[in-house]
Design a binder for these strands. Structure first.
Lengths: 340, 340
DNA sequence: TTGAAAGCGGTACCAC
DNA sequence: GTGGTACCGCTTTCAA
């Protein structure tokens, strides 16, 4: 920057102003400085900028790169940031490096805003961190005061999925889900909300709920589904906690020589492959790209407009009916009359 | 840091040494300082560190988040970095913000190393940037001098795929690929190499090559495949430039009321969904996770061991046979005798 | 409007 | 081994 100042015959401060096109620079000076910048190929060091002001970066902590729903969120966030001058910095969590340390790491880099997706970080810790940097938490229904939350109405989505199955005559519907950490009354993980809504619906129909847990690792849903399907043939439909699990249920069906004509499957998220004709997975969409975009917008409200009160934004999910959900087949247990 | 120094009754410099566990600190001092750090919850600012030394970050520029092969590369890179103290910072390209500006952006953030995947950045520009920061370019076969390249043997992979199809009796094999920018003799994009290898194989068999281009956007391969399949029924197999394209070919087949018993399909990359029983896509794997891991290793050689000469690392691809490739069916044109 | 100078939070070299 | 101090490259008063 000194070089530029010397070349343009002005002071460092002036160059700084031109770079940030701040107030109080004459046209003639701006012109000279810009020429010098171009001639010398000068680029400001963001590290140095960050020490005094902004780093013009938004951190996105993502617990699992393999999750295609999260990929959609990333894409939405990246798209929303185009033209704002901010750069999206994605920090993937992996192994022991996930949740807290990753967010801390991003905060140490002086990002101007943080999108957290990790289910494994406590609300208390997040409140603390949110004192330093604007945060929006995606997915979990927290009653936060210092950070924003961005969720979808998981209970409504679940009712959409189950209502659809019931309209096809399904009664004995199993729920395949993952265990979620940190479940509390004021901090509810999405899968916990879905599970509860499932149990409520089943209670209303007077049918015993059938819940199967897996750990979410690749193959774990497959194994759980195989066990469920072979052990409990009265099940006519499976509501999977999200699409990746549902996809593995489809695998299990296929390798058991069955199809969705035998057992219907519905997922959650509407990941891209769900709409492929060979998969054709019915699901509930929560508009991942739009979630990513909204997350950035919420952050920007705090960064540029200085909002400080928490917002809790909720997306309305929608049903996507495809061919993995079919009317309950004739030879199965008939639906037990009309349910209340 | 001043606060820590005061609390521990030592100098700033001492604290700095403890933080980086550098040479020349007595145990008693280290103990006091560490206690003070813990008590005050001190965390060093990476921006400040970056100004004098290292930012302990590796930048990964990725042109397309939707590409699952690249997702695997990301995962491998993230996994390799666990425990090294370096953080992976992924900068996704999108819209006009891709290639050059994204890499520049990362470089401005003083990353210690850069993984570039973008096909759209010129070798000359990369050579220039590589003077400032260690770079490994993934995918493209550049004859670089300042940066490393990490590729797979695309010609061999193509021969694997085509050899497999020919062994099943296929002769009229089409190639669906994407147009690649910046094709030059000393900077060959993977798809250009695959295309050339395809043409060579076809020339050897004396069959007219049938190449179809699409732009790689979602749905473009589907449209191209539909057109190809309906216009040219003599085609018995399609070699797709990568798995995402192949998946769309499968879509096209399905919506045309056909299956892989009619037309075989083979892809490249072995993305996760390829092994799903409902998809079961034959393909060529280039071990994406391992590519990511190796990219980091190459970078680390430069960062910690100071290597300066370029390395050009090549992965040996392998065939993955699944059910999307079938023997050419009876009622189709019979294979024209034994090929040389 | 412009320039000079004081930091920001670290690192590294230097005497002690 | 330890503490003092001069930077790093930028932003931001504050005078001129």
């Amino acid at each position: 920057m000194d070089d530029v100042a010397r070349a343009a015959g002005v002071s460092k401060g002036a160059v700084s102003k031109v770079v940030r096109n701040a107030y109080g620079v004459s046209d003639s000076m701006r012109e000279r400085v810009e020429k010098a910048i171009k001639d010398l190929g000068y680029r400001p060091r963001i590290a140095a900028q960050a020490m005094r002001g902004s780093s013009f970066s938004i951190g996105l902590e993502i617990p699992n790169l393999g999750n295609e729903f999260l990929t959609q969120v990333m894409q939405g966030a990246a798209a929303r940031l185009v033209g704002t001058g901010y750069q999206l910095l994605v920090a993937p969590g992996i192994g022991e490096m996930r949740g807290t340390p990753v967010l801390e790491n991003l905060a140490d880099r002086q990002v101007d805003g943080l999108i957290a997706i990790s289910p494994e970080v406590t609300p208390e810790w997040l409140e603390e961190l949110a004192l330093d940097v604007p945060i929006v938490l995606v997915g979990r229904h927290d009653e936060s005061v210092n950070y924003d939350t961005l969720t979808n109405d998981d209970a409504a989505g679940t009712r959409l999925a189950l209502g659809h199955l019931r309209s096809l005559g399904h009664v004995r519907i199993a729920h395949l889900t993952i265990r979620t950490p940190l479940d509390g009354p004021r901090s509810r993980p999405p899968h916990s909300v879905r599970l509860e809504a499932y149990e409520q619906v089943m209670a209303q129909t007077g049918v015993e709920p059938r819940v199967v847990f897996c750990d979410g690792a690749p193959g774990s849903a497959y194994a759980a589904a195989r066990e469920l399907l072979s052990r409990d043939p009265s099940i006519t439909a499976v509501f999977a906690g999200h699409d990746s699990l549902a996809i593995e249920v489809l695998s299990a069906l296929a390798t058991l020589g069955m199809s969705t004509r035998d057992v219907s499957v519905i997922g959650y998220d509407d990941i891209p492959i769900a709409s492929h004709p060979l998969v054709s997975l019915s699901t509930v969409t929560q508009f991942g790209e739009s979630v990513g975009r909204t997350a950035i917008s919420l952050l920007m409200e705090r960064i540029t407009q200085g909002r400080t009160h928490a917002r809790h934004y909720q997306v309305r999910p929608e049903l996507r009916v495809r061919s993995s959900t079919q009317p309950v087949s004739e030879h199965r247990d008939a639906p037990s009359g009309s349910a209340p």
